[in-house]
């Protein structure tokens, strides 16, 4: 099963890659290729030029920048998952990375690649959204930042322009009194494979009550979505089991839930509530 023929550029610098993208509107950026190559093999997508940035130096680090972690374009899922900095500062993202694909996929695929690909059932998208990450997009004409809230547009569609590369994701670190968590039901049961539905939560506690919360869902619609109702219901409560249950019940409020091969609308809405509740509970436990 071969892709259609294409030209291949093994870029040695970001500038070289950006220039190639600017010159070829039909080109596609590749890092690990875990999403792009299967699409090309199925011929659902046939770019004329693949710009491989896998060898570009300086993009494979996770930097602790004080209030946030800067995760470079070439940081693989396995690295995000095992990074102590991510585990302690952005646990939901580390957990989501650990549940992305399988061992072999995590060894090749990248966190930034998964965000840019914007699969409806991806794991790290929900974590990035709950954590309030910022995407750093660069093109030959400059650099801009995009808030996670504005980044996920639709099925397999992010706010990135064709000539832009997601060079870094900046993930705010959960500080004292804050914690985050991610969990899902996988398509193959347990937490294996893409999410039938999943949720990431970030919770800040203050003196025994919930001071702030952000919850994001994945797998239930055409893009990761903030569950604003859960956060609204949770803030100001003592975070008791009853308070979490009442908040989780509002998981799909304002969220478009769609049926797919893996579940009906009702089932997905139910799972969204279950996993929103579990993520909130785990995030609160991590906050204390």
């Amino acid at each position: 099963m071969y892709p259609r023929s294409f030209e291949y550029l093994a870029a040695t610098s970001l500038d070289e890659a950006l220039a190639a993208l600017a010159d070829n509107p039909d080109a596609k950026v590749m890092t690990g290729g875990m999403s792009l190559i299967p699409l090309m093999k199925l011929r659902l997508f046939s770019p004329s030029l693949v710009v491989d940035i896998g060898r570009v130096p300086g993009l494979d680090a996770i930097d602790d920048a004080g209030d946030h972690l800067a995760i470079g374009a070439l940081v693989r899922h396995a690295t995000t998952a095992s990074s102590e900095a991510v585990q302690s500062g952005a646990a939901a993202l580390a957990q989501a990375a650990a549940l992305t694909g399988d061992v072999q996929v995590r060894n090749r695929g990248t966190t930034c690649g998964a965000l840019a690909h914007a699969d409806i059932a991806a794991d790290q998208t929900a974590a990035a959204l709950a954590l309030g990450a910022t995407m750093v997009a660069r093109s030959s004409s400059g650099e801009r930042t995009i808030a996670a809230d504005d980044f996920f547009v639709d099925t397999l569609t992010s706010a990135l322009q064709p000539d832009e590369i997601l060079v870094e994701v900046r993930v705010p670190k959960t500080g004292a009194g804050s914690g985050s968590a991610y969990g899902k039901l996988g398509r193959r049961g347990g937490q294996s494979d893409y999410a039938v539905a999943g949720a990431a939560a970030v919770v800040t506690m203050d003196g025994g009550s919930v001071a702030a919360a952000r919850v994001a869902l994945t797998g239930v619609g055409t893009k990761p979505s903030l569950a604003a109702g859960v956060a609204e219901a949770l803030v100001g409560t003592d975070g008791s089991e009853a308070a979490v249950a009442a908040a989780a019940a509002r998981a799909t409020e304002g969220v478009t839930v769609l049926e797919d091969l893996y579940g009906s609308e009702e089932y997905k809405a139910h799972l969204a509530q279950v996993y929103a509740g579990r993520a909130v509970t785990a995030a609160m436990a991590a906050a204390s």
Binding site: M1, Y8, A10, G33, I37, L42, D52, V103, N107, R108
Partner: peptide, 24 residues
């Protein structure tokens, strides 16, 4: 389609699926 893993090899010490990697 990168599901089955029959093509698993090690590249620079890490297990990867060689059907989802270009020779280049």
């Amino acid at each position: 389609t990168s599901y089955c893993g029959a093509c698993t090899i090690q590249v620079d010490g890490a297990a990867v699926k060689s059907c989802t990697m270009l020779a280049v």
